[in-house]
Every structure is written in C-alpha cells, then in structure tokens.
Design a protein around this nucleic acid. Structure first.
Lengths: 113, 113
DNA sequence: CCAATAATTCAATAAAATTCGAAATATCGA
DNA sequence: TCGATATTTCGAATTTTATTGAATTATTGG
C-alpha cells in the first residue's frame, strides 16, 4: 500500500457520515448493506450517501455489487488491514514488527486500549 | 476515544505533509524532532509546517515541548493505539476481539499484510 | 538591552470537500 | 411497455482546508 492510497483511505474515513457507514459495514460483514438502507440509518439523503459511498469505494475500503435494484456495499477487510499495517510500520524506528502491542511501549499501550 | 476525536485524528493524518511528519515522529521516538527540522525535511515553509503541526496536536496525535528556542514535537503512541483500537472495534459483529488478525477473516488478512 | 534564531499567529487567497434537489439510469413486476 | 423502486450523476451554493508572506512572540548569547 502506498502513501497516496493511504491518504485517500484516511481521508475517506475522516468524515462523520462515512465513518458511520464504514463501521456499519464492518459490523455487517460479507453480507453487506444496500445504499438506501445506509442512507436511512445514517440520516442523509440518497444523493449525499451516494457521494460518500463513492469516496469509500474510490479509497478501496468498500466493494459494491448489484443485487436486483439494490446496490449492496460491503467493507473490504483487506484494505482495512493494509491501512493498519501501514500506520504501524516503522513504529519502532524502522525495525519492522508484526506485533504493534510489543512495538509501542506497553506501559503507554495499556492506557490506550 | 470518541468518534469526534477519531475523525479529527483521521483527518489530521489524511494529508500528505502531516502524514509524512507523523511518520518521521513515529520513527524518531520519544526524543522527538524540532518544528524547523520537520519543515526542512518535508520541504514546506515554517508557517505551513506550524499549521500542520497544530492540526496533529489538536487531534492529540503529537505532544510538544519547548527546549530552548526550539519546540520539539513527538508522536503520542497512546493516541495512535487508541485510534487503531477504535477502527478494529466491532470488527466482527459487535463482539469485542483483542486480536484483529483473528477477527478479520484470516484468508483475507494474508493478502493484506 | 540588542541582534539573531526559532516558531507561531494573522490575513488574504486559492483549492478541495460537502450538501442536496432535480434529472438521469437501471431493474423489476404486472 | 409502463409505473414504481433503488441509485447515481449533475450542477450550483456553501463550507472547510491548505498555503504562505509578513508581522508577532519567545529565547538565547554577547
């Protein structure tokens, strides 16, 4: 994952309605949720929801599939994992570490999680 | 960590120069880096760097301390951990899980990390 | 105190993101 | 094919962000 795409992903998540939508999708799993249902649950008009979903899709954070008249969105867990990996990469001075909990000072980590 | 602060943190990181600065600080550790050095390394004028550092500080992602004439910035690992925790929270349908690798479908996780 | 250094704040501008009604597109059921 | 449903695209107004030179604040050494 390159910084360019990371910035788009972070930017996509850095918005109230999109963060809400993404979290609903994370919880919904592979089944996904139709655009209209997301709009209703979040409380924004369909055209606004469509705009936000396009941002998430462009960032690669969600996938979309048509099912009859509905377009169903689902979270892309791989992209999510990639984003997290990028953010913790080099978290202890350039030395790669698989376990952020061990990399980030434990005493500080306790209060964080 | 509440969604409001999460959005500010994500927004703070969703910008080329700020992401670059934060990564330098993550690698620098507790020692930190003076504002002027960051500006020079990233290639932006001091006033621009100051603006961006203020965003990061406002989001709680960095701390600042004065040392003689310099103001030295350092990454806040706790905030970083909190952000990651929020993003993976509920990642498998509302059931809390400490290990995102086990929560996010392993087969998908492989291609991501 | 004064000149030099380090950063920030201010202000004005430029660029990007958000909002949402109205119009357009796609799909289904009868 | 027609009408209803589900979404997206378009367009235009609004709001938020980003950029930087110039002025301001803080600190040090002489």
């Amino acid at each position: 994952m390159q910084s360019d795409q990371v910035i788009r992903a972070l930017g996509a998540l850095a918005q109230e309605h999109r963060l809400a939508a993404f979290r609903l999708l994370i919880q919904a799993g592979a089944e996904g949720i139709p655009a209209g249902v997301l709009a209703e649950r979040i409380g924004v008009p369909p055209s606004s929801m469509s705009f936000h979903l396009a941002q998430l899709a462009n960032a690669g954070l969600v996938s979309q599939r048509r099912e009859s008249r509905s377009i169903i969105y689902a979270a892309d867990y791989a992209a999510m994992g990639g984003l997290m990996a990028y953010l913790t990469e080099n978290c202890c001075g350039g030395v790669p570490c698989d376990d952020p909990a061990a990399c980030i000072p434990p005493s500080i980590m306790e209060t964080a999680l």
